[in-house]
Simulated scan of single mutants.
Amino acid sequence: MWSAHGWHAVQKLLPLGATVAPVIIASNKMQLTNFSGGKAAYPVYLTIGNLPKALRWKPSAQACVLIAYLSVIKPVKKKGVLKKKLHLRNCELFHQSMVEVLSPLKEAGLKGEVMTSSDGKRHMVHPIIFSYVADYPEQCLVTCTKYGTCPKCCRRASTLEKITIGRDCTQT
């Protein structure tokens, strides 16, 4: 992440003396119960890219923070309601929940926050989301793409092994 072009591009846009704190968000759907209704949740974690990779996800370093548990509503088929419609409702619930959870981060990224570093100096820091770490089902959920296709390009799952890059996805 330290050599990422995006980091340097954002840093150039900030006022002199301000710095970027690249934020990494991660989620993975987990089963909470197996025998009493199959309850599930999406734990959402946050860490920053300024930390070395070896330290970032190490539990004893406490560099990763749980910021939310998002509920997963099991689609209950109602008379006259399509399963696809119920799935879309759950996707919308996930996205609206993430908007609520990450809204303070959005404001802090735009305005900046004064933070104290380990040497006691105060700096203007702009936390900006640079990465979202998720497995394939969550990638499809986050990017609003159909399961079985690539979340990044317009290519079916059966053709993902090709070396050539596919056409970029658009939100149309």
Rank of each mutant, 00 (worst) to 15 (best):
S131M: 10
H126P: 00
E107V: 06
D119G: 00
A157D: 12
S27T: 10
A9R: 12
K84Q: 11
S36A: 08
P15T: 03
N50V: 05
C154I: 07
L93W: 01
A108P: 01
M98N: 10
G38C: 04
A61N: 12
C154D: 14
L141H: 04
A157Q: 13
T170V: 07
Y42H: 06
V44W: 05
A134T: 00
C64T: 09
D135N: 09
M1G: 06
R122F: 01
S97D: 15
S158F: 10
Q62R: 13
S103T: 08
Y132S: 06
S131F: 07
S36C: 08
N34V: 14
C169K: 01
S158Y: 12
P137V: 03
D135Q: 08
I165T: 09
G38V: 00
K58F: 02
H5K: 07
P104V: 08
V99F: 14
V10S: 07
I165M: 04
L13M: 15
K58Y: 04
F94S: 00
V99A: 15
L86I: 12
A54V: 01
S118Y: 03
L160P: 07
V125S: 02
I73L: 11
Q96W: 07
K121N: 11
Q171E: 01
H5C: 01
T33S: 15
E100R: 12
L93C: 01
W57R: 06
P15K: 03
Y132C: 13
L70G: 09
K79E: 14
L14Y: 03
K39Q: 13
S27H: 05
M124C: 11
N34A: 15
K77L: 14
P15D: 04
L13N: 14
L88M: 13
S118F: 01
L110W: 05
A26D: 03
E138H: 05
V65H: 14
L55N: 03
C150L: 09
T19C: 05
A108V: 03
Q171W: 05
C154N: 12
N90C: 08
L86V: 13
L14P: 05
M98C: 06
N28E: 11
G148E: 03
G17A: 02
E100I: 10
I129V: 11
Y132D: 09
K162F: 14
L82I: 02
Y136E: 01
T143I: 03
C64R: 05
S158G: 09
G120Y: 00
K83G: 09
A18G: 04
A61C: 08
P15A: 00
K83I: 13
V99K: 15
S158I: 15
I73H: 14
D119M: 02
S117P: 04
S103Q: 11
S3F: 02
Q62D: 15
G38A: 08
A41R: 03
P15Q: 01
I129S: 01
K74H: 13
V23E: 02
K53I: 14
K85A: 15
H123A: 04
G109M: 02
